[in-house]
C-alpha cells in the first residue's frame, strides 16, 4: 500500500492485523512513536493522521492507505529541534523519555490550533498522554514555553 509519511510517499507491505504503529516502527524505520499500552490509553504512539491527533496503535495499518501521517520525526529540522522539543529539553520535562514523543506530538497538535492555551486547555489537550515519571508539572511548564517559542514571544 502507499501512504504519505512525513511528506514522503512511501510504499510498504503490511501484515495481517498490523497497526499503523507497527508499520511506522518496524517497516518504515520510524521508532519515535512508542509502543506501550496498545489500547489508546497512554498516548505514547500519538501521530497526526490527515492532520488529526490519533493513537497510531488504534489505526489498522492497511486502513492508512492513501492517507497522510506525520510522526514526531517530522518536527525537527535536521539537527535543529522544533520549539516544542526545545522547550521540553529546556524545562526538564523529560525523565525516562518514553512518553516524550507522544507528548510532543500532542503539544504540537494543540499549539498549531491554539497558540496561547490556558492551563485548563493544556491539561485537556494532554489528557490522553500518560507520563509515569515527572508528575506533569514540568510538562505543563514546557507547553507554555513551547507556545512562546513557536510564536516568537
Amino acid at each position: 500500500m502507499k501512504l504519505t509519511v512525513n511528506g514522503d510517499e512511501r510504499e510498504v507491505e503490511t501484515a495481517d492485523h498490523e497497526s499503523l504503529l507497527t508499520v511506522l516502527r518496524e517497516r518504515l524505520g520510524l521508532p519515535g512513536s512508542k509502543n506501550a499500552c496498545e489500547q489508546g490509553e497512554c498516548g505514547s504512539c500519538s501521530v497526526l493522521l490527515d492532520g488529526a491527533l490519533v493513537c497510531a496503535c488504534l489505526v489498522l495499518g492497511a486502513a492508512a492507505a492513501g492517507r497522510e501521517v506525520r510522526t514526531v520525526e517530522s518536527l525537527a529540522d535536521g539537527d535543529r529541534l522544533h520549539p516544542v522539543q526545545r522547550a521540553f529539553v529546556d524545562m526538564g520535562a523529560v525523565q525516562c523519555g518514553f512518553c516524550t514523543p507522544g507528548l510532543i506530538v500532542s503539544t504540537y497538535a494543540l499549539l498549531k490550533e491554539n497558540p496561547e492555551p490556558s492551563d485548563q486547555e493544556v491539561r485537556e489537550a494532554l489528557s490522553g498522554n500518560i507520563c509515569r515519571c515527572t508528575g506533569y508539572g514540568k510538562i505543563l511548564e514546557a507547553v507554555q514555553r513551547a507556545s512562546a517559542g513557536m510564536y516568537g514571544r
Binding site: H17, E38, Q39, C57, L58, V59, L60, A62, A63
Partner: peptide
C-alpha cells in the same frame, strides 16, 4: 478503530475480512 483495534492488538479478535 478505537474498539476494534484494541480487540485485534490483544488477540481477542482475528477478523478475516475487514471493510474500512
Amino acid at each position: 478503530g478505537t474498539d476494534l483495534l484494541v480487540e485485534i492488538n490483544f488477540g481477542r479478535a482475528r477478523p478475516t475480512h475487514v471493510i474500512v
